[in-house]
């Protein structure tokens, strides 16, 4: 059942992205940036946590979760260190994804030859 919920919610988020591409003529980069902003704003209201509870990977896999976890790390650190903590904790939760993306992209670029 949770697979079905992840499938449907993740798919619905992608439909929103596709509508932005087709109707508003966004580029994929614009869509990704917009979704990250939406994710952090939703987390600002505390909505995204409930969404993850409901949808599981349907909410954590789309790029909106990047904005969510940026803000989440920032707020957790802000509770300990006050105002400066917002900057200190920003990448705390997303560092796994970002470092993985940098390292894997680097090695892929070294190993493979560009196609097309």
């Amino acid at each position: 059942m949770e697979y079905l919920i992840a499938f449907v919610t993740g798919g619905l988020i992608c439909i929103v992205g596709q509508l932005l591409l087709d109707i508003l003529k966004f580029t994929p980069a614009h869509v990704m940036a917009t979704f990250v902003i939406i994710g952090s704003i939703l987390d600002g209201f505390g909505i995204y946590d409930k969404f993850i509870e409901f949808a599981g990977a349907g909410a954590t896999v789309p790029i909106t979760s990047f904005g969510h976890s940026l803000l989440h790390g920032a707020m957790a650190e802000a509770e300990k260190h006050g105002f400066i903590g917002i900057g200190m904790g920003m990448f705390k939760l997303t560092s796994g994804g970002i470092s993985a993306a940098i390292v894997f992209a680097f090695f892929v670029a070294l190993i493979f030859k560009p196609k097309g």
Binding site: G10, G11, I13, C14, I15, V16, G17, Q18, L20, L21, D22, P28, A29, V31, M32, F35, V61, P62, I63, S65, F66, G97, A100, A101, I102, F104, A105, F106, V108, A109, F112, K113, P114
Partner: peptide, 26 residues
């Protein structure tokens, strides 16, 4: 084939980094 279906998930983020890195390999 998929348009936003492959761009919106986190995989699209990794794809944009790897493809940009590959493109400028030369």
């Amino acid at each position: 084939f998929a348009g936003a279906g492959s761009a919106v998930p986190v995989t699209g983020f990794a794809n944009s980094m790897a493809s940009a890195a590959l493109e400028y390999k030369s």
